[in-house]
Design a protein around this nucleic acid. Sequence first.
DNA 1: ACATAATATGAACCGTGATTCACTCTTTGC
DNA 2: GCAAAGAGTGAATCACGGTTCATATTATGT
Lengths: 216, 216
Amino acid sequence: MAYRETEKVRSRKAKTFDSILVTALYMVAEHGFSTVQMAELARRAGVATGTLYRYFPSKEALCTEVFKRATEVEVSKVQQALEQTVGHGAERIAAALTVFAERALRAPTMAWALIAEPVDPLVDQARLDYRQRYARLFELAIHDGIRDGSLPDQNAQFASTALVGCIAESLVGPLAPARQGDDVTTLDSAHIIAPILRFCLQGLTASPYEVHRHEH
Amino acid sequence: MAYRETEKVRSRKAKTFDSILVTALYMVAEHGFSTVQMAELARRAGVATGTLYRYFPSKEALCTEVFKRATEVEVSKVQQALEQTVGHGAERIAAALTVFAERALRAPTMAWALIAEPVDPLVDQARLDYRQRYARLFELAIHDGIRDGSLPDQNAQFASTALVGCIAESLVGPLAPARQGDDVTTLDSAHIIAPILRFCLQGLTASPYEVHRHEH
DNA sequence: ACATAATATGAACCGTGATTCACTCTTTGC
DNA sequence: GCAAAGAGTGAATCACGGTTCATATTATGT
């Protein structure tokens, strides 16, 4: 009897695991999921093709994991915005939508990959979850808003779904790969984000939306 | 010298052409684009695989054509609703959204295929066009609404995009294939459509949306 | 009936890229 | 140092499904 996984090995494996995921994440951020190929990914991660399959059962599983990781970051940023903004439910939602959109416009390929790129069914499933997580965050905030009087009573579940649909769709145009030659500053904030915010907030509050200035 | 395409042949070809498209349309309506396979399609259309390629240069082209045909119908229904409804811009938009949603809920797989199913890039391109056509219809209606005073002044282009995003996303949940075992009546109108309408109309008008009863 | 030309056929082909697996290399405990 | 047990390798394999093409069929005009 000999060999038992030791700490040294465990950590090396963890490092390899991470390196695979991080490399894949880079590739997605560069050109989206469709260009992630196992052979290429292995090369860039500095391992053999077969090794990938010692860490993930399939490409789909790997991509799903990548998707989830990327998602994690985005969702938590939006959550932070919801939690850390002081003010009424409505204002917090506005802040969260802004964070969502600004981050997307700043990393358009990644955002497009998460929001709109055609992907394998399994990964697409993860996308549904991703959208639902946003929806749920917003749902809670809407309930808060109803409670604090900044929003009229309404079906928070539907409203939150509608919110997610609005931002997602409104960003698809600006994010589409065809556009990405464009100067990034063209995409920047105000002109794109303001009308989205207006529509969303009016949808929620049923009253005219005033743009608030706020320092960074 | 002999043989020149005669009327008889022309009409037979037209029939074959249609039969291929119609069969493909059925298949999409049944299980979406992903399950359309050339061999199977040929079998069901009563022709040989090779024949498909006498009518379409590639599968993508064929699917794109199917997509466009399906689209044509839907867009024109929405257009009709916009044109034939009497009333303010806002009311006409409400009617159009209702038509869109009702039709989608009545043929959920097809709607899902058109709205949300992951498809080849070329077909996806057609989808962008499809959404833009809706957006443009709504854009015009919004302009009308601004002119007739039923809507406040706003960026109609953004607003129309947001509208499309809202309905699309709001319907994706109810339409997702997983759900399709559900009783169709569960999906029916009021409970799903009303909150969507409310959000959309409020987003446009910035004032509380009243549900209007109207006989069919 | 015959020649000509277009159409239809479907089994074979092929490109792609994920997956496998027989083998080598490392690690571990004795 | 050695045997056991993983871990790593990467060229070969495989699955899939779209596409091709040599052949058969059908239509047309004389």
